[in-house]
Design a binder for these strands. Structure first.
Length: 652
RNA sequence: GGCGAUGUAGCUCAGAUGGUUAGAGCAUACGGCUCAUAUCCGUAGUGUCCGGGGUUCAAUUCCCUGCAUCGCCA
């Protein structure tokens, strides 16, 4: 069996963020899973490097486009090892081989009459020197130049996409798995229920030079999709390479929902025009929000994978992303959530199971795997749970249901922890007559740990390696490296020497709570309920924080442009501020500052606080104020900088 | 404006072709164990299953409508 799995090629106008990392981790995990299943796998990722955005960015930095692309592309390539992502091929659209193949495909499609010369009209902004989409406009104006774009018409080349619409529809109907999850398949079908327009595939070189020139007209370069999508083929040395014949028939693409249309409509119609078989499956996932907000540059809440790895470790990040997101739906990232997963799932459940089992083996059997024994009912149930986990895991992984796969793995972990309590090995150990039973119990635990090592190998490679070492197995022992060899109960060899190992996962502290002289006035007062947390907060009040912790707080100057009381509240004002983007902040200052006094005032805000809804109003930040007392009366005094500054200025 | 999705415990979500006590994890409270990373195990809860109307012996589940959030399209 063979597998070809790809991520999109990432556009080099931005640095890798959480979304890129997720897509690529998914592809890597799937690739590893298929390899564990004994398949011949090819996993490809890469970068998309043409287009006017890149040319512009390069100009700003006063370097050539290719120099710019080289630099950003390297950021991607170098990010993946940090996440234990191991692609078999990293493709760049500036590779000579790719360019040659794109031109060859264009020529073929042109020769057969599926590309024609026509007119294109759109909204063009002279300031930006590019077409804007309706979506980009703010009040009908270009967001950057504050003026309306012109409707202009220019000559361009078009791909006859409409010609293949029916064929594509038929294919989707005949192949229910072609686009998954189903919601995206439905979206595509609904889109295809309307007539398709043909696809504009060129830009005149008067406006865009940084691209692949059309082989049949040197005055034009290829625009986006005919360049980008073909990477999936050029990475296989299409048309002549051996790789192509081997892997293309089993191609599977992973994408985020924003590029559904190009992958579900443009790409298959292109393949039909080229006379090639379509890919097998398209797997579409949702977005990662940060807290409850979209991740975006302008909000400044972009999550960088390298920083996550530095803080939490690779395996925690991989586990968290795969476990927390239901594949296909949006999910929410927060440091509180990742710490909770790390502590409860990884440290307490898995780490502690591993640690307590090995400790008992060391104590009671001198760190060797004991022989199995007579099977009691609890043993049979444990075994059944394990076998069931293996089949559910296998099925879910194959369907990209990573969260379900991991859920079933954790069912076994939880069951094994209960099994220990029921079996009470420490009681058995006190009675020499019970030694066979003790050994049987411990042998069953070794089996559980071995199977866990096997199934976690694709998801958390490092942890799996540590577990294998603890079990006295080499990293590529078929018992933990091959599903077909190892995925059965009862294969551990009695007498195998076990190794003492360090804890798999440390427990982490919950993310910090602010306190001190500057008091929160608006947003959520963090709920501090458990005794443990209360204790920690008490310490934090007099404690010091690292500079790096301080740096995580995005303090800015914001200008209040509107203020109103929130009905039904004596304390709350709803402020509209510029920072520099417009946002709404609810502040608990109404007793001290009437709304009319607020307008025009500049205040300090925490800009990267997780938004919350207060009295039905969404608050995107927190206004800082000092608490004080004058003549025994409580007062609140707003913070500000001593002179007027541009709204949005950073405070540090 | 058109089409669609979602709205379930404090939080994140699962689920039932309509039928007795609606589930899991986290969080909370109490109890137990001591092999273990102050871990683990057990018990206890709370839910107008978004609002309103309809169909039905019976609706959280089906239909209509409203509200909220999100997505696709224009």
């Amino acid at each position: 069996m063979t597998t070809y799995i790809t991520t999109p090629i990432y556009y080099v106008n931005a640095q890798p963020h959480l979304g890129h990392a997720y897509t690529t981790i998914v592809a890597d995990t799937y690739s590893r899973f298929r390899k564990v299943c004994g398949e011949d796998v090819r996993f490809q990722t890469g970068t998309d490097e043409h287009g006017d955005k890149i040319a512009e960015a390069a100009l700003k930095e006063q370097v050539s486009p290719i120099e710019y692309a080289n630099r950003i592309s390297a950021l991607y390539r170098e990010s993946w090892p940090l996440l234990d992502i191991v692609p078999d091929n990293f493709i760049r659209t500036t590779d000579p081989n790719h360019i040659k193949t794109v031109q060859r495909v264009l020529q073929q499609v042109y020769d057969q009459g599926d590309i024609y010369f026509g007119e294109y009209s759109g909204l063009y902004c002279k300031g930006c020197e590019r077409f804007l989409t309706e979506k980009e406009l703010v009040d009908g104006n270009c967001p950057d130049h504050q003026r309306p774009p012109e409707k202009i018409t220019e000559q361009n080349y078009f791909f006859r996409m409409s010609k293949y619409q029916q064929q594509l529809l038929d294919h989707i109907h005949a192949h229910p798995d072609f686009i998954t999850p189903e919601r995206y398949r439905n979206e595509v079908l609904s889109f295809l229920s309307e007539p398709l327009e043909d696809l504009c595939i060129s830009r005149p070189i008067s406006r865009l030079t940084w691209g692949i020139s059309l082989p049949f007209d040197q005055n034009f370069v290829t625009y986006v999709w005919f360049d980008a999508l073909i990477n999936y083929l050029t990475g296989l040395d299409y048309p002549d390479g051996k790789l192509f014949h081997q892997y293309w028939p089993v191609a599977e693409h992973v994408i985020a929902k924003d590029i559904l249309k190009p992958h579900a409509i443009y790409w298959p119609t292109m393949l039909l025009a080229m006379g090639l078989p379509l890919y097998q499956r398209l797997h579409v996932h949702g977005y990662w929000n940060v807290g409850e907000t979209k991740m975006s540059k302008s909000i400044g809440n972009v999550v960088r994978p390298a920083e996550l790895v530095a803080e939490y470790g690779v395996d925690t990040v991989r586990y968290f992303l795969l476990r927390e997101m239901s594949f296909g739906l949006d999910a929410s990232f927060s440091s509180a959530a990742i710490v909770t997963r790390q502590n409860s799932d990884l440290a307490n459940d898995l780490g502690n199971l591993f640690s307590r089992s090995l400790a008992m083996l060391e104590k009671y059997t001198d760190a060797t795997v004991p022989a199995p024994g007579a099977i009691e009912e609890s043993d049979a149930v444990l075994r059944q749970t394990a076998v069931q986990m293996l089949s559910q895991y296998h099925e879910s992984m194959g369907q990209f249901q990573f969260h379900r796969a991991l859920q079933s793995v954790w069912d076994l972990i939880s069951h094994a922890n209960k099994y220990i309590v029921i079996s009470e090995p420490w009681v058995l150990a006190k009675d020499p007559a019970q030694q066979p039973r003790l050994h049987a119990v411990l042998n069953n635990l070794v089996e559980c740990l071995r199977l866990l090592t096997l199934v976690l190998r694709s998801v958390m490679p490092q942890t799996s390696r540590k577990m294998a070492a603890g079990l006295g197995l080499s990293a590529d022992d078929p018992l933990i490296a091959s599903f077909s060899h190892g995925a059965q109960w009862g294969l551990s060899t009695a007498g195998t020497r076990l190794q003492t190992t360090a804890a798999l996962f440390p427990r982490m502290d919950k993310p910090g709570k602010e306190s001190g002289a500057i008091a929160p006035t608006g947003t959520a007062v963090q709920k501090i309920s458990s005794k443990k947390e209360k204790k920690k907060v008490a310490v934090a009040e007099v404690g010091v924080i690292e500079f790096a912790q301080f740096q995580q707080i995005d303090l800015r100057v914001a200008e209040v442009i509107a203020a109103e009381r929130i009905v039904k509240s004596d304390r709350l004002l709803k402020l509209t501020v510029k920072a520099p983007e417009t946002r709404t902040i609810v502040a608990g200052i109404a007793e001290y500052y009437p709304p009319e006094e607020m307008v025009g005032r500049q205040v300090l805000i925490v800009a990267n606080l997780q938004p919350v809804e207060i009295m039905g109003v969404r608050s995107q930040g927190m206004v800082l104020a000092a608490k004080t007392e004058v003549a025994g009366e409580k007062r609140l005094v707003l913070t500000a900088v001593s002179g007027l500054v541009a709204p949005g200025s950073k405070v540090a």
